[in-house]
């Protein structure tokens, strides 16, 4: 393996190097073009592709971990506390209510730390990438827009057959096996 072209031109027929280049050109001419006709045909992107961040706000508990861990602080979260009366009397419970969740994609570095740290699976990657704007301010996606991206989130790909079983699966099965903790009907 290794040298295919190599040093054969030294002392060879003059112009052979140019001729070989033209041979490649001719060969390529007979083949199908590899150029993707982008706006007409959209590219096939793998499910892990980091295009845009989607928010499943139903899952968000306003724990602020994503906003804190973001390396350039491009996530904006506002919330307030709401008192919920306890169902069986007693002291009312307080609950966080999300007022604003926005991601500034002009700042975002697409590192996926926020998605990784989210303990309640509220953030997901979507491979969608066509959200360029004329005004940089419009790159800040508010919660409605982030929620809309959820519809484009693909299911995660299966892991390699030699991968360790996800700990969530083992934990779930362990819980099922335990007496009294099985799925309740």
């Amino acid at each position: 393996m290794g040298r295919v072209g190599g040093t054969h031109t030294s002392g060879g027929v003059p112009g052979i190097g140019l001729a070989k280049g033209l041979a490649v050109t001719l060969r390529t001419m007979t083949r199908r073009s590899v150029t993707g006709q982008y706006p007409d045909t959209s590219p096939e992107l793998p499910p892990r592709s980091r295009g845009v961040i989607a928010l499943l706000e139903e899952n968000c508990t306003v724990c602020m971990l994503c906003a804190r861990e973001c390396p350039d602080w491009c996530i904006y979260i506002d919330s307030h506390k709401e008192a919920v009366p306890a169902p069986e009397g007693g002291r009312p419970r307080s609950r966080n209510v999300l007022d604003r969740f926005a991601i500034d994609f002009a700042l975002c570095m697409y590192c996926s730390i926020c998605i990784e740290v989210c303990p309640f699976d509220a953030l997901f990657w979507s491979p969608e990438f066509e959200y360029a704007e004329y005004d940089i301010l419009d790159l800040t996606h508010e919660r409605d827009r982030l929620r809309e991206w959820m519809w484009t989130v693909p299911p995660p790909p299966a892991h390699d057959s030699r991968a360790e079983r996800p700990k969530e699966l083992s934990a779930a099965e362990g819980a099922e096996g335990r007496p009294g903790r099985g799925p309740r009907g």
Binding site: V4, G5, G15, K20
Partner: peptide
């Protein structure tokens, strides 16, 4: 080999 042929030996 395409890249090799097109440029490596090019005079």
């Amino acid at each position: 080999s395409d890249i090799e042929w097109i440029i490596r030996g090019n005079e």
